[in-house]
Simulated scan of single mutants.
Amino acid sequence: MRCQPNSQPQVYNWLKNKQTCLLCDESTDGGNAICTSCEAELPWLGEHCQVCALPLPSHGLTCGACLRKPPSFTRVEAPWRYAFPVDSLITRFKHQAKWPMGRLLGELLSQHLQHAFDDGLSRPDWLLPVPLAEQRQRQRGFNQAALLTQWIAEPLQLPWQAHGLQRRIDTPAQQQLDAATRKRNLRRAFALSPAVPIDGLHLALVDDVLTTGATAESLARLLKKAGAARVDVYCLARTPKPGD
């Protein structure tokens, strides 16, 4: 399988019987490209806010921010905290085009979601990747959220719409900004594709990391105003509060 968009592509055969762990290079004992020991040591999210998935010390709590002002999305599902080695894998996938890293995380996210569905989480009608501005996507060569959406849609047998959401304004990179600046950045940044019917549907946004939730809130609010019945967020990792 060709996994890199360059002249000398790094190749990882996802269908071979004996996988090699992408973290420690040992042989794996399952269908994913990660061994049992490395998978167990990933920074699993643990106890978290029932709405935004912010890491919390106890089970079944809702964080203060969601209590004070409930977000437009209903629930965030994320397997991990944004910590080593997941943060490194996401960075290498997103900024260095190491597609096997993203594919591994996408496979594990799909398994996490399947467990959540089995436990009663409502299945969405559509998956929608968080969009990139055209210039940024041309520079990067791909939209990591769209790839993740494809990789979780196939095993979960969920429909997805690659261009259901559009980014009209190329806002500055969000990573180093505080919550208030992120919100100002995102005003009028997004638009809906007129070809995508969403009235009365349950939708799920897909992205790599949820930090302040400003992007998810902006998109969920847009979708709810257009008639969506419910909006969830599926992502790889959730950042903790600064200092936690």
Rank of each mutant, 00 (worst) to 15 (best):
R230E: 08
D207A: 01
G31S: 12
T28C: 15
F117I: 09
M1G: 14
P71L: 03
A229R: 13
A40W: 09
G30Q: 12
A162T: 05
A145Y: 00
L54F: 03
D199I: 09
A145T: 01
L156H: 06
L56H: 06
L109F: 07
P194E: 11
Q19H: 14
L210F: 01
T171K: 12
D170Q: 15
R168C: 10
L219E: 03
L67K: 14
S218M: 01
H202K: 13
C49Y: 10
P5W: 06
G213C: 03
R230V: 07
Q150Y: 00
Q114G: 03
K94Y: 00
Y12K: 02
T20F: 02
S218Y: 00
P131E: 11
V86C: 06
L61V: 03
K16D: 05
G64D: 15
R140Q: 13
E134L: 14
P124E: 02
C3L: 08
G213A: 04
M101T: 00
L42Q: 07
F84T: 11
C49M: 10
Q137V: 05
C63V: 04
G200T: 12
D170I: 06
A237Q: 10
P124M: 05
V76H: 06
I169Y: 14
Q176I: 01
L156I: 11
L177F: 03
V86K: 12
Q114D: 14
L165V: 11
E39R: 15
C21W: 08
A145W: 00
N17P: 03
L156P: 07
N17K: 09
V206C: 06
A237T: 09
V209S: 01
P57I: 08
G64I: 07
P172A: 06
E134A: 14
A220W: 06
G243H: 05
T171P: 14
A229T: 01
L205Y: 10
P240M: 04
D125P: 05
E39W: 10
T211I: 03
R138L: 13
N13A: 12
R138W: 09
E26P: 01
E77T: 13
P57W: 08
S7A: 14
